[in-house]
C-alpha cells in the first residue's frame, strides 16, 4: 500500500474544509473564548503572587500553559469524530469498505490538512492575540524543539481518540453525547481546564495514567521546562509514544471488528 494512494484524500480534505471559510473564524472565536475563561479564572488565583504560586507556576507560566493548551486543542480539533460518526449514521461507511484503501488511513490523510490549516489559521493568531494581551513565558530553544516533537505525538493520539469517538456511531445514534463526553474528559485530563500539576493527589495520579495527558500536559511540560534533565523529558515522550502505539493498535482492532460486522449486516 503506497502512501501516494492517500494523497487525493489529503487534498480533498482540505478542499472541503476551505468551502467553509467561516469555520476558521469560528474555531478561533470558540478557542479564544475557551482560553479566556480559564485564563481569567486562573489569573485571578495567581493575582498578587509575584514569584512561583501554586504548583510552582509563575503567573506568566500558568497563562502560557492554559493558552497553549487551547492552541493544542485547536490543532486536535481535526473533525475526524464528527465525520466518522456522520458517515456511520448515514450508512456511507459501507461504501468505504468497497474501496481498495484502508478507511482509518484515509481519515488520517484527510485530517492532516485540517490540522495544518487549524494550526496556521487559528492556532498562531490565537497565540499572538494572547501574547499581546497578557505576559507569556518564552521557552528555551531546546524546550521548544522538544515541544514540537511532543506535539507531533499528541496529534496521533488525538486522531485515535477522535476516530474511536466517531466509531461509537456503530453503537449509538447519539454520537453527539459521546462527543460531548469525550470533549469534557479530554479537556479536563489533558490539562485544558486545570493545569494537571494543580490537581489534588488521587486525581493527579489518575491524570498521569490516562492517555489524555499526552495531548496537552505532556507537550506543555516540555515547553515550560518543567522536567528534570534528559530522563524527565524522555519519560514524557515515552508516555506519549506508548499511548500512541497502544491507541493505534486499539483502533486497528476495533475497526476490523466493526468492518466485519458491517459486512455481515450489509450496511
Amino acid at each position: 500500500m503506497r502512501a501516494g494512494t492517500y494523497v487525493p484524500f489529503v487534498t480533498s480534505g482540505l478542499q472541503s474544509l476551505l468551502q467553509y471559510r467561516s469555520t476558521f473564524l469560528i474555531t478561533g472565536v470558540t478557542a479564544a473564548a475557551g482560553a479566556a475563561v480559564t485564563v481569567f479564572l486562573w489569573r485571578a488565583v495567581y493575582a498578587g503572587s509575584t514569584g512561583p504560586g501554586p504548583g510552582g507556576f509563575t503567573p506568566a507560566g500558568v497563562t502560557t500553559y492554559l493558552v497553549v493548551a487551547q492552541v493544542l486543542a485547536v490543532v486536535h480539533a481535526n473533525r475526524v469524530d464528527d465525520e466518522v460518526a456522520a458517515e456511520v449514521y448515514r450508512g456511507d461507511i459501507a461504501v468505504m469498505l468497497v474501496r481498495p484503501v484502508s478507511y482509518p488511513l484515509v481519515r488520517f490523510a484527510a485530517c492532516l490538512p485540517v490540522i495544518a490549516a487549524n494550526a496556521l489559521l487559528v492556532g498562531v493568531p490565537l497565540l499572538a492575540l494572547f501574547a499581546v494581551l497578557v505576559p507569556l513565558t518564552v521557552p528555551t530553544p531546546v524546550d521548544a524543539a522538544l515541544f514540537v516533537l511532543s506535539t507531533a505525538f499528541s496529534t496521533v493520539i488525538a486522531f485515535c481518540v477522535n476516530l474511536l469517538t466517531g466509531m461509537a456511531g456503530f453503537v449509538t445514534t447519539n454520537t453527539w453525547g459521546v462527543r460531548m463526553v469525550k470533549q469534557g474528559i479530554v479537556s479536563f485530563f489533558a490539562g485544558q481546564m486545570v493545569p494537571l500539576a494543580l490537581l489534588p493527589g488521587p486525581l493527579h495520579a489518575l491524570a498521569m495514567v490516562l492517555p489524555f495527558r499526552a495531548m496537552a500536559d505532556g507537550p506543555l511540560t516540555l515547553l515550560l521546562g518543567r522536567y528534570e534533565g534528559v530522563g524527565g523529558a524522555s519519560a514524557v515522550l515515552g508516555h506519549q509514544l506508548g499511548w500512541a502505539v497502544g491507541l493505534v493498535l486499539l483502533c486497528a482492532v476495533l475497526w476490523r471488528a466493526a468492518a466485519s460486522r458491517l459486512e455481515v449486516l450489509g450496511g
Binding site: T11, L14, Q15, L18, Q19, R21
Partner: peptide
C-alpha cells in the same frame, strides 16, 4: 461561482 480544483477552493476562500 465555485472554481474547480484545489486552487479554485483556495481562491473562493478570498
Amino acid at each position: 461561482e465555485r472554481r474547480p480544483g484545489l486552487l479554485g477552493s483556495l481562491s473562493t476562500l478570498l
